[in-house]
Write a protein that binds this DNA or RNA. Structure first.
Lengths: 337, 337
DNA sequence: TTGACGTGATAAATCGATTTACCATAGGGT
DNA sequence: ACCCTATGGTAAATCGATTTATCACGTCAA
């Protein structure tokens, strides 16, 4: 590996000069000729600064950790994509971690931070993690951004505009003429779940409707959770004509269960789900969704970390605004429904 | 941050002694008492070695890069999970990269390696990447393992046992009585696609059947590719009674298109797909799949890198063996079919 | 002639852990 | 008394980039 002193030798200057030229030190006074020679030498030798050395000296690592509950959810994947792009553009690397580690190996994050390996952490907690667990994560001096979870507390947070998303879904159903609307939500105690449910209730109230509690579940966002919710909901004496599902993954489960009972979508029940990923368009019928700015959330988290120093922030990411993607799982309620 | 010399001071020994005790240097002779004091001091101060310093001195980074084409595929996600677990167990960190970068920013990998930031690379190329592109990736001295793609060449490779997987799917269909079987494959020119198609043809031949070329497509693994393949295939004058789909994501697309034409699965057509991820169980009907050891593949790649030095290897991961997961998308062919 | 000042650099310390080469001291054998 | 060896460590160089403090040299003014 070619190093700083090699470049210095070739350019006929000191290592100090090379370092300062290449890093754009403005307090350095240098003649244009020397600058050119340094640049040329670096180019010619294909010089790349050694990361460990730089990091040791500056105690900055240009690396952030992305900790997520479930790599297998496409919702996470969108997030990761946004984070990865933004990080790439800023010359930051992203190290991946699964949130389970936080429990299996409580020292894991501490160690990562202690080793001085990362400058900051983007953390998405498993839904339903008690807020108290959050506080135990406050590690000395290392900036943490909690995303898509709580929206206050001692750590910085960025959340999606869940309320706007739900409102969009509800407007769509209302415009189609639905009044008997159920809600399949996140886990009881999950922050996003609470926000989405509150938004649902608000939208119902605004429409002069009162939600039917038998049509409301809080079992979680996974496909199996959605299926379990559908099982429970479809036991009711009467059925809703439409469902708002708080997560697309859960909606797949709901759909499967509905098929299993030989009900038709949207003939018997319309479905609209939060989050738009590729398989919303590959189910039968394709699912009407609300596209939330997930990749932008990932990017925003990186930005927040990179620009941090401004202390703790609490942001609602409301731009780009949630967007309704109408597919074939929603239609007007069955006549006489 | 507490450092080595702090521990040394507390234990009353030299930094050298502490380093050698903590890293288990066997050539060091040290009294039991001293060893205890060092251990106790390290524990008491909650000492964690600085990664940059260690890395600078040893020029090893305990970090590997995982480069994948598409974060949004659950197939990748399984892979990442396996890699992450194995890496975690070995104290390695994983930095995430998207394969697109290799094209957008051709220096990206070079820079990562040049900075001395990673010890090795696990690389899954986008399907259809010409093998020539591979060779341009050979970076000086940095071990690369190419997974789930080519199975020879100048770089180490690990691939799934595609043939065994396809064979399992075919056996299942044959036992149900199918003879008119179509194949929805990967991209023409993709290594996995070629292996799976060859295995399909071999299985057909073995059963004394000759494949109907109109029932074979090579459009890719994504959901939309599957749908496009189904569109083409369903135009045929006669239809197969069963389909082997080389990727579950594509199978979702196939299923959607079949529904769209009011055909029944498995009534009119049975479907079996490669790769078993959660949403195989959340479609309608749930899809019969072949579970390939994806997370094990990720783990194996990490092991290969960690233990490398043995030079270039070419491995077929045949254990655990592929496993048939029977769901409701397969049944005996329609009578008179 | 002296001093002051601007210009264009560089020397050397520093970040923290690792590792090679070396050194005291005590005990044993002849 | 003398050498030899084993025991239990330590001193100091090293990895490569950054940064602070300093310096040599001209030039211009008084």
């Amino acid at each position: 590996m070619v190093k700083l002193s090699d470049v210095a030798a070739l350019a006929g200057v000191s290592p100090a000069a090379v370092s300062r030229v290449l890093s754009g030190d403005t307090t350095l006074r240098v003649s244009e000729g020397t600058r050119q020679r340094v640049m040329a030498a670096a180019q010619q030798l294909d010089y790349v600064p050694n990361h460990a050395a730089r990091s040791l000296r500056t105690s900055r690592t240009s690396t952030i950790a992305l900790v997520v509950p479930d790599v297998t959810s496409a919702v996470f994947a969108e997030l990761a994509r946004g984070a990865e792009d933004e990080a790439g553009a800023r010359g930051l690397a992203i190290v991946l971690g699964r949130a389970e580690r936080l429990h299996d190996d409580r020292d894991w994050l501490r160690r990562l931070v202690g080793e001085g390996r990362i400058d900051g952490v983007i953390l998405q907690l498993p839904d339903g993690t008690p807020p108290a667990d959050l506080e135990s994560l406050v590690v000395q001096d290392t900036p943490i951004v909690v995303i898509n979870s709580v929206d206050d507390g001692p750590l910085s947070t960025i959340v999606l505009d869940d309320a706007a998303g739900i409102r969009l879904a509800m407007d769509h159903l209302r415009r189609l003429g639905h009044t008997d609307i159920g809600f399949i939500g996140g886990l009881l105690g999950s922050a996003t779940g609470a926000r989405r449910e509150a938004a649902f209730r608000a939208a119902m109230a605004e429409a002069g409707l009162s939600p039917e509690e038998a049509w409301m579940t809080r079992l979680g966002y996974a496909g199996t959770d959605g299926r379990a919710a559908a099982v429970r909901l479809l036991e009711s004496a009467t059925l809703p004509t439409a469902l708002v599902v708080a997560n697309l993954n859960a909606a797949l489960g709901v759909l499967a269960e509905i098929h299993d009972r030989d009900l038709r979508v949207p003939g018997d029940i319309s479905i609209v789900a939060m989050h738009d990923v590729w398989y919303a368009d590959a189910t039968w019928p394709p699912i009407t969704t609300v596209r939330m700015p997930l990749s932008e959330l990932g990017a925003a988290a990186v930005v927040a970390l990179a620009d941090s120093g401004s202390g703790v922030i609490h942001t609602v990411l409301d731009s780009p605004a949630p967007q309704l993607v109408v597919r074939r799982s929603t239609a007007a309620p069955r006549a006489g429904g």
